[in-house]
Simulated assay, not measured.
Amino acid sequence: MHSKTLFKQDFLKKWVLGLQYYGCSTKEMSISERTKAIKLSSDVAMASCRDGKTCWSRAVITDASKQGENKSLVRKILGNEYEKLTKYSIRSLVCNKRVRSKKILRKSRKSRPLVVLASTVIAKRMVNKRTRMLKDLVPGGDSIDDSFLLEETLDYILSLKAQVDVMRRFVSASESLICK
């Protein structure tokens, strides 16, 4: 519980830095540009709170820093950790690859009835389809090994949940200040 609170506090600090960056900008922004700026600053802030410990956080930071106009925002939010967290490209991310045992593979190839083989093929297709869909949802998912995909996805979902919670509290605090 304590780490969740620290994560939210860290996220809020970094997100406010990102919002200040766009607030100090002399450029007039449309509603859609403001929406993109808020989303980008919150995503980079959320990813930076994970300190590059997960593949999805490194992917978010790398994607954001690749775009020239976003580089200074990423640099502002990350501060001293900018060089450390942006030196990796998504292609160089090695996300916990495991090697399967040859013995297990040999045992699984023993002859089985045709019905079992057909159901196994169907089950494998369904799992592969859902795995591809999950990899599309998680930033940097295509570089994540299948054995760690659920762990990365869970971490990403928990971070998104914390992000939404902080943003809701921020909006309600802003509304209460405006109403007074």
Results as ranks from 00 to 15, higher is better:
residue 1 M to K: 12
residue 5 T to Q: 13
residue 5 T to F: 10
residue 7 F to L: 14
residue 7 F to T: 10
residue 8 K to D: 03
residue 8 K to L: 02
residue 13 K to Y: 04
residue 14 K to V: 03
residue 14 K to Y: 01
residue 14 K to T: 06
residue 15 W to H: 11
residue 17 L to R: 14
residue 17 L to T: 15
residue 19 L to N: 11
residue 20 Q to W: 07
residue 20 Q to D: 15
residue 21 Y to E: 08
residue 21 Y to Q: 10
residue 22 Y to P: 02
residue 24 C to L: 14
residue 26 T to G: 15
residue 29 M to K: 13
residue 31 I to V: 09
residue 35 T to V: 07
residue 36 K to W: 02
residue 37 A to H: 03
residue 37 A to G: 07
residue 38 I to F: 05
residue 40 L to T: 11
residue 41 S to R: 01
residue 42 S to C: 11
residue 44 V to P: 05
residue 44 V to R: 01
residue 45 A to W: 01
residue 46 M to S: 09
residue 49 C to S: 15
residue 52 G to L: 05
residue 52 G to D: 02
residue 53 K to E: 13
residue 54 T to G: 00
residue 55 C to F: 01
residue 55 C to R: 01
residue 57 S to Q: 04
residue 59 A to W: 01
residue 60 V to C: 03
residue 62 T to S: 15
residue 62 T to R: 01
residue 63 D to T: 09
residue 63 D to A: 08
residue 65 S to L: 00
residue 66 K to G: 06
residue 70 N to D: 13
residue 71 K to Y: 04
residue 75 R to T: 02
residue 77 I to P: 01
residue 77 I to V: 14
residue 79 G to D: 07
residue 81 E to D: 15
residue 81 E to T: 11
residue 84 K to S: 12
residue 85 L to Y: 05
residue 86 T to D: 04
residue 89 S to A: 03
residue 90 I to L: 08
residue 90 I to K: 13
residue 91 R to H: 09
residue 94 V to T: 12
residue 95 C to Y: 02
residue 97 K to L: 11
residue 98 R to W: 02
residue 100 R to G: 10
residue 100 R to P: 03
residue 100 R to E: 12
residue 102 K to R: 10
residue 105 L to Y: 08
residue 109 R to M: 13
residue 109 R to E: 14
residue 110 K to Y: 02
residue 112 R to S: 10
residue 116 V to C: 06
residue 120 T to Q: 14
residue 126 M to I: 13
residue 127 V to L: 12
residue 128 N to Y: 05
residue 128 N to E: 14
residue 129 K to R: 15
residue 133 M to T: 13
residue 134 L to G: 02
residue 135 K to Y: 04
residue 135 K to E: 06
residue 137 L to P: 00
residue 137 L to T: 07
residue 140 G to W: 04
residue 140 G to I: 00
residue 141 G to E: 06
residue 144 I to V: 15
residue 145 D to F: 12
residue 145 D to P: 01
residue 145 D to W: 12
residue 149 L to S: 07
residue 150 L to A: 13
residue 161 K to W: 07
residue 161 K to Y: 09
residue 165 D to F: 04
residue 166 V to P: 05
residue 166 V to I: 10
residue 167 M to T: 07
residue 167 M to E: 14
residue 169 R to G: 15
residue 170 F to E: 09
residue 170 F to R: 05
residue 171 V to T: 10
residue 172 S to G: 01
residue 172 S to K: 13
residue 174 S to G: 08
residue 174 S to K: 08
residue 175 E to A: 14
residue 179 C to M: 09
residue 180 K to V: 08
